[in-house]
Amino acid sequence: MDARLLDILIQSFPKILLPGIMVTIPLTVLAFAIGLVIAVVTALICFAEVPILKWIARFYIWVIRGTPLLVQLFVVFYGLPSVGILIEPFPCAVMVFAINEGAYAAETLRGTLEAVPHGQLEAGLCVGMSWWQIMRRIVLPQAFRTAFPALGNELISMVKDTSLAANITVTEMFMKTQRIVAVYYEPLALYIEVGIVYLLFSTVLSYFERYGEKRLATYGKR
């Protein structure tokens, strides 16, 4: 590797990492957190079979999981302005990623909610607890525990998917790299470099995921 290329790579590293820390990570964390809230509500609606709302929930999951994330981003960012709804790039990305994650995590949680042995709900009712108290204290914790590895995977995919936000003018790591490439014209080396930064992020996350899984309560199960 010649000295010029090495120099470019070293100089651009902080320039790529900075939007990684300032944009990619906040985008991921915010969208994932909001997505989880959406997922819990949606999964509970499906689980409790709330009339009407359950159809809305299923429709939401069906549409979101059946269309590309990139299309969803474009519809909201480039499409909605034509009906007068203009959203800034970053909040728009947070919103779309959250809605997208919400649908996937809702399916995950719905599955694990249904896997919690049903008798515990009846036992809770019999000791006088309300449906919501039982959900909050007994059923949801167990469902989350089972869903943890799957949710961890979804978080890791999301870190990588945030690169799609470049398409709606969010200056995250990938967009920043594209700009650097335009200046130095070293696509191979620079795109590999940004790939390595993504790899770094997801490696740290999977480490946390595994650590968390070990530390999480197993309720005495071996």
Binding site: P117, G119, G128, Q133, Q142
Partner: peptide, 27 residues
């Protein structure tokens, strides 16, 4: 009233003691 089930139906994420106290504290 109280109900004792054929297959126990204990709260699996709670200890024995918590199983007993849950209905007292929460309900």
């Amino acid at each position: 009233t109280a109900f004792v089930f054929q297959n126990y139906n204990l709260f699996l994420n709670k200890t024995a003691l918590e199983n007993v106290t849950e209905g007292l504290i929460i309900a």
